[in-house]
């Protein structure tokens, strides 16, 4: 396979990924078409914030001690982050992170993380 068709399909997948909250089924299909090819990272607000998550949470979900994010849906992420925001316990690290995110930022990163996990993509 030459680079150009792969790039084209990846580009297509990225375009769909940007709209994935509207067409989650289409996103999955796009990835199934190209086994073994992961999409490029993107520069959406959710992706930029999620880069911070990846400093501690192993995107493959293999890590020990620090819970993976790959199994969480959007609503669960928002709910847990609001709980972290409200209290220094059980984790002052997550309390600090949660306090640093506005509601719109939290929504963006939760959507991005949930979509990434759904697509089997590394955040």
């Amino acid at each position: 396979m030459t680079a150009e068709p792969v790039a084209a399909i990846v580009s297509l997948a990225r375009g769909i990924a940007a709209e994935s909250r509207y067409f989650p089924g289409a996103l999955l299909s796009a990835f199934l078409l190209v086994p073994g090819v992961s999409a490029a990272a993107d520069t959406s607000q959710g992706a930029q914030i999620a880069a911070t998550c990846a400093s501690c949470h192993d995107p493959t979900g293999r890590g020990q001690g620090i819970p993976p994010l790959t199994t969480l849906d959007e609503q669960t992420i928002v709910k847990r982050m609001r709980a972290f925001r409200a209290s220094e316990s059980p984790s002052h690290v997550m309390h600090a992170v949660a306090l640093s995110l506005g509601d719109d930022e939290l929504a963006a990163v939760a959507r991005y993380l949930a979509d990434s996990a759904y697509a089997g993509r590394q955040p």
């Binding site: 400093s55 501690c56 192993d58 890590g63 020990q64 001690g65 620090i66 002052h92 309390h95």
Partner: peptide, 29 residues
């Protein structure tokens, strides 16, 4: 925010365990 003097041994053990997981995730990142 920072850990506090007087935290239980259990809390500190959990952090030591998390530290190893953090190292693995961070270096993979």
């Amino acid at each position: 925010f920072i850990s506090k003097v007087g935290e239980s041994a259990k809390v500190r053990r959990r952090l030591a365990h998390q530290a190893v997981g953090w190292y693995s995730a961070f270096t993979a990142d």
